[in-house]
Design a protein around this nucleic acid. Structure first.
Lengths: 195, 195
DNA sequence: AAGCCAACCGAATGATCGGTCGGTTTTTTT
DNA sequence: AAAAAAACCGACCGATCATTCGGTTGGCTT
């Protein structure tokens, strides 16, 4: 299993940095020390390799949010919970840069149009993430710390905002750190404003 | 100039749909009817061709905002102006899908790290767009329809939100149309909330 | 009509691509 | 220890890639 994991780890890095078409199996071979025959022994083709990488991205990403949720102290308001999720998403954007880069590239979404497996992975990722945002909003609606009409749609708008900042940060257009305070106040206004 | 423009138009479509590495000069040749020699006669290599496409993207995009600004009725509040810009950005995300797809892909930002020309085009696009958002916010601060601390940073957060929605819409994750109302109320809260 | 130049052509080139295959080594099972 | 299975190897293949180059065309100037 050693070589296989090395292939997956290096493939994650190469796919995220150079894209699907920009990643050569030969380069994967030299970087991991595995022969090309070995790579195609473990994965039937390049697309299957990427689908496994995407599956790992999904699992590690959702695992991070699970861990974070479990170690959260109970008793905070719904608004505080949403702000905490937003903050954690920004944090992950830095620590899991490769995984986010893959999700920000276009090729997974093109592959999703022909590969149901790819489509399912992406759908699973986004529904799970939106559920996490929505859960905080819902809690806030119940404890009064959040006031708005449609929790799901607000979660979608909120997610687009945070994910957009993470993307523009890794693309070197924004400096996410310098935007942290503005983002937090924007979230508070967006969630706790008048009905 | 006929062949050259045909090459540029088709290159815009192919680069946006298939990416830089996914676009073969041979395909460009068959789709335009121009021989490969003709393509390299007009553009010294594939990268130079893309830089010209990016320049055209920049100019057409900023031109659209210029036209839109000129035909805007004077007298509206700053808040209304920002909402109008947001709405127009969403609209352009549909009508100029290819241009936005190019800006949402990763490869221009990678090319920017080695090509100063590419870097300048991208910087010019984002500063111009952020200026447009900020101008509305500034006007709103003066006429009292907008209340907040840092106009530039708020423009950046706002832009990340709208651009994120456009991106997730073209990637078939969101349905931007269904989010329109939620986005507008989100913008109002974000801009007009307490100080 | 002679000269010129930019537009245009497409066969040729060498590099690189994803993927295959027959064989060897290592690990697991019996 | 024998046999079966899984991991691994790297030379090889046909296809495709960006780019080159020698040559043709057609309009413009002189």
């Amino acid at each position: 299993m050693s070589k296989k994991n090395a292939i997956l780890a290096t493939a994650t890095r190469l796919f995220s940095r150079n894209g699907f078409q920009g990643t050569a199996v030969a380069e994967l071979s030299t970087l991991t020390g595995a022969a090309t025959g070995t790579i195609f022994h473990h994965f039937k083709n390049k697309e299957a390799l990427f689908l496994q990488v995407l599956k790992d991205v999904k699992e590690s990403l959702l695992d991070q949010f699970d861990r974070h949720r479990q170690q959260r102290l109970p008793g905070g308001s719904g608004l505080a919970q949403v702000l905490d999720v937003v903050s954690f998403y920004l944090h992950l954007g830095g620590t899991m840069e490769d995984q986010f880069l893959i999700l920000h590239r276009h090729f997974p979404y093109q592959m999703a149009e022909t590969s149901p497996v790819c489509r399912d992975h992406l759908a699973s990722i986004y529904t799970s993430l939106l559920d996490i945002f929505e859960a905080g909003i819902q809690k806030g609606l119940e404890d009064g710390s959040v006031r708005l009409d449609d929790p799901r749609k607000t979660a979608m708008v909120l997610f687009a905002m945070v994910d957009g900042i993470v993307r523009l940060n890794t693309y070197r257009v924004y400096d996410a750190g310098a935007l942290y305070d503005s983002l937090m106040t924007a979230c508070k206004r967006l969630l706790a404003g008048g009905p």
